[in-house]
C-alpha cells in the first residue's frame, strides 16, 4: 500500500510532471512536491510524487555499504 517507486521527471507543466522509468512514461501530480525539477527522481505513490530522492544521500549510503563490505572481507 505504501509502495512508492523512484521515477525520473522528464518535463513539468503546472503541477503535473511527465515521468519515465524503465521506458514507461506516466503523468504524475507534483502538487505535494512543488520543489521537484526536471531530471529529479521522485517517489511515485498513487499518482502523486510524495518526495524528491536525494541523490547525494543515495551515493553516500552506497559508499558506506561498500566500506562495510570491504571491511567484512578483511575480517
Amino acid at each position: 500500500m505504501c509502495l512508492a517507486v523512484p521515477v525520473r521527471i522528464v518535463s513539468i507543466a503546472g503541477d503535473e510532471a511527465e515521468t519515465e522509468i524503465a521506458g514507461v512514461r506516466r503523468r504524475v501530480s507534483i502538487a505535494l512536491t512543488p520543489e521537484a525539477k526536471v531530471g529529479d527522481y521522485v517517489l511515485l505513490h498513487t499518482g502523486y510524487a510524495i518526495g524528491v530522492v536525494d541523490e547525494a544521500e543515495a551515493e553516500e549510503t552506497l559508499r558506506l555499504l561498500q566500506e562495510i563490505a570491504d571491511l567484512s572481507e578483511v575480517h
Partner: peptide, 23 residues
C-alpha cells in the same frame, strides 16, 4: 532501475549481514 537495483547487491548484503552478526 535506478535507486532500486543498487540496493539489492548481494556482496553488499553479505557485508551488512557479517557486520550484524559481529555486533
Amino acid at each position: 532501475m535506478k535507486f532500486i537495483d543498487e540496493y539489492q547487491d548481494s556482496r553488499l548484503a553479505k557485508g551488512l549481514a557479517d557486520q550484524i552478526a559481529r555486533r
